[in-house]
Design a protein around this nucleic acid. Sequence first.
DNA 1: CACATTTGACCGGC
DNA 2: GCCGGTCAAATGTG
Length: 308
Amino acid sequence: METPFAQVTDDLIKGRELATQLQGLLRDSPKSGLIMDRILHAFSRSIHAAKAAVATSERASSDVQSEVIDGVSGGGKRKPASAAAGGNRRACRRSRTQQSSVVFTKSIKSLDDGHAWRKYGQKEIHNSKHSRAYFRCTHKYDQLCAAQRQVQRCDDDEGMFRVTYIGVHTCRDPAAAVAPHVLHLTGTAEGMHAGCRLISFAPGGAAATTHDATASTTTNANLVDKDAATGSGRQGMKPESGDQEEVLSSRTPGNSAPRSTAPAATAPAWPDQGDVTSTRQYGGAVSFGEYLDDYTSLGDLASYVLDH
DNA sequence: CACATTTGACCGGC
DNA sequence: GCCGGTCAAATGTG
């Protein structure tokens, strides 16, 4: 049986072949050529990662943390909250087992993954020292993007965060997608604070690379519960805090957010920057999350090329 | 004013 | 009944 990863691998290989052909056609445009190089590089990395995932999943299908769940629609509904005090809570919450799609977890040092997230909740988790923050894509409503993620500081290594992604981005957030890379290349990162150096697949190598210092542990380890994930509003996320945070913000959600706010996607006190650092969850050296990052970015890059 | 975060309450699953 | 995920009113910020 073919695992989803195997299928993805096949698709990626085909994609790389097509990209190669496209590169030939775009030879005359230096800019496009540059982007094509990046696309090819990303394809290669993704293929490599996907293969690793295939190998891993074949032998460890049981204890994987990443999994693909069949998207279900329908919904788990709750009864009309007529009762209770507060009364009118919407009854349309989806049950957690039904929301679906791709779910994977990874441990990272910084939280910026290039997407604009909006925090919608935070919870103390039993048996965990730190609370867990819940984020949904900023474009959940305007673009019906179903991506969500949960962020929780690791108990054993406070400089690391365990991030669980649920669903994949279906939104087209230009800033999130291409920007980090392209802007970095072209040097137009104006106003994007640091937006720049983040993100995964840096051409040279191993995206992850950056384990750079920035965050090595310490980072804001001082946050304590509450402040931890929060940092209240945007005040907390202001770049001022120095390195770790400058970041993320960078992007302003595509259309609808005139405001700056770029949700620090995360938590103010939390580091951001999305380098994908390891994750052993997937067993191997390559994390599925990392691969997914590239995978999604590929589409964005490709569309960018087509638009220009 | 628009939008993001905070936070207590609600609700389903176990 | 507990726990975790989500909602939505309140609040804050630019």
